[in-house]
Nucleic acid binder design. Sequence first.
DNA 1: ACGGAATATTCTTGTAAAGGAATATTTAAA
DNA 2: TTTAAATATTCCTTTACAAGAATATTCCGT
Lengths: 111, 111
Amino acid sequence: MMETAIFSALAEPHRLRIVELLKNGPLTVNEIAERLQIRQPQASKHLRVLLEAGLVEVEAVANRRNYRLRSEPFQTLYDWLKPYLNVWNERFDNLDIYLQKLQAQEDDQPE
Amino acid sequence: MMETAIFSALAEPHRLRIVELLKNGPLTVNEIAERLQIRQPQASKHLRVLLEAGLVEVEAVANRRNYRLRSEPFQTLYDWLKPYLNVWNERFDNLDIYLQKLQAQEDDQPE
DNA sequence: ACGGAATATTCTTGTAAAGGAATATTTAAA
DNA sequence: TTTAAATATTCCTTTACAAGAATATTCCGT
């Protein structure tokens, strides 16, 4: 069963924007705080949540921290999502098969 | 920019399980409450959140309500997710191109 | 060793949201 | 037209969490 940690992490608007920013490559805490127009401590806190959810990883360079996306949770998300994308097609397929059977019956027993 | 409504809705464990249940087809409120081992009012409340997030739709049949998944939010989610799935490949491609350029330079200026 | 920059942490406060209990509403059945 | 079933809503309490302010920590340059 899917964990809700990923969804919780992405449910906060600032954190979602951080993830979208990091799509273009690693950023430091101050860069993120600056672009989101939030204060540094809030940026650090949100990054901590993203870190604990496994969405990002850090690389310490001197007194800076480069945060970057991790691929795994996105793959997890995709694996979870995939079946849903097919649900409606499958339902249609089932209807399709049903109609074909109906047609076959009519062929067997013409009025 | 992506809305956080979908993520918030899925961030609650009971609601995530409801969505996973509905993958197999529509269910009534009591059926859901029963399978999740929660009380009916909580089921109704969670379904209301899912409804307002656009994840499910209702069909009233007598005094029962059949809840079913809507396809749109899952498509939205996929469209949002798609670019992330390619990010790491692209990074690798860029590295690849960089290495090719490096190789080309070495060819121009052999030691 | 000292000062400043970059980041993390702690404490507090306000707010949103989840669960429980009780009740209201609608519909079918007797 | 009562009664029961299915569902929704309201009120209350508790908990989780986001933001602000202040402070701690770590590292570089001088």
